[in-house]
Each structure stands twice: as structure tokens, then as C-alpha cells.
Amino acid sequence: MNAPFRRCLVACAAVMLAAGSAHGQSSEPSALVDQHHCMFCHTRDAPFLAPSFQQIAERYRNVPNAQFMLEHKLRLGGKAHWGDMAMPLPADRGGPISPEDAHTLVQWVLTQ
């Protein structure tokens, strides 16, 4: 493959990745989702035991300080904001979660 063609392919791929991220298609932090048992209660696009990630994103995406509130709730558990089920304590979801991991998960959820 010649160099100009290769550069063009790389540039096109970069534009497509950037466009996907801008439209809520960022890659799932699968290891964190698995480690903290997120899918025990949530799904990406339909309510289950708790709201879907898409529902959470729709409700909180444009709410000031929502990122901070959701990270706090993820790290400590919290009262129900939807229906009757509260966010379980971290010990019931795979153990403590660092501020950095909570930030990563919440950022991903808000892109759904």
C-alpha cells in the first residue's frame, strides 16, 4: 500500500472515530462494567431492574453537576431516583470503586 493512500485511510479512520464519539458511540469500559456488576440491574437500552444507561443519559446529560452526583452515587450507593430500587452499596456490586473509575463509568453512561 502506498504512503499517501495509507495516510488517507488513517485520517478517515480518525474522523470516523471522532464522529462516533461525538454521537454517543464511545466504547464501553467493559472491564469496569463487569467488575462492578452494572449489568445485573442495568442494560444499555431498556429498563430492567433499574433504568437503562440510555434513560440515565437522557435524564442527566444536560443537568448541571449531574456527573458529580452520579459519580458520588456510584461510589457510595444511594436512594432511588427511579422506581423503588436504590443503587446498591459498593460491597454488593463488586467492591469499592475509585473516583477515577466512577468518572470513567459515568462519562460513558452519559454518552449513551
Rank of each mutant, 00 (worst) to 15 (best):
89 L>A: 11
45 D>C: 09
41 C>R: 05
29 P>G: 07
16 M>T: 13
17 L>T: 09
49 L>Q: 11
45 D>R: 11
53 F>T: 04
45 D>P: 08
71 E>I: 07
85 M>R: 04
32 L>T: 03
52 S>I: 04
106 V>G: 06
89 L>N: 08
104 T>M: 14
107 Q>N: 15
77 G>A: 01
6 R>K: 08
21 S>L: 13
73 K>C: 09
35 Q>V: 08
38 C>G: 10
37 H>N: 06
47 P>V: 10
79 K>A: 03
96 P>L: 14
47 P>W: 06
21 S>M: 13
52 S>D: 02
108 W>M: 00
93 R>C: 11
25 Q>F: 14
34 D>I: 09
52 S>M: 07
30 S>M: 09
77 G>S: 02
43 T>W: 09
82 W>E: 07
107 Q>C: 14
24 G>E: 09
32 L>A: 01
60 Y>I: 01
72 H>I: 13
89 L>G: 10
90 P>S: 05
29 P>L: 03
5 F>K: 15
43 T>Q: 09
49 L>N: 09
75 R>N: 05
94 G>Q: 00
76 L>Y: 13
110 L>P: 06
106 V>C: 00
48 F>S: 15
16 M>V: 13
67 Q>Y: 14
52 S>Y: 05
69 M>G: 12
6 R>T: 07
101 D>P: 01
51 P>V: 04
14 A>P: 00
29 P>T: 06
102 A>S: 04
53 F>R: 05
73 K>A: 12
84 D>Q: 08
40 F>W: 14
35 Q>F: 02
90 P>N: 05
83 G>M: 00
48 F>D: 14
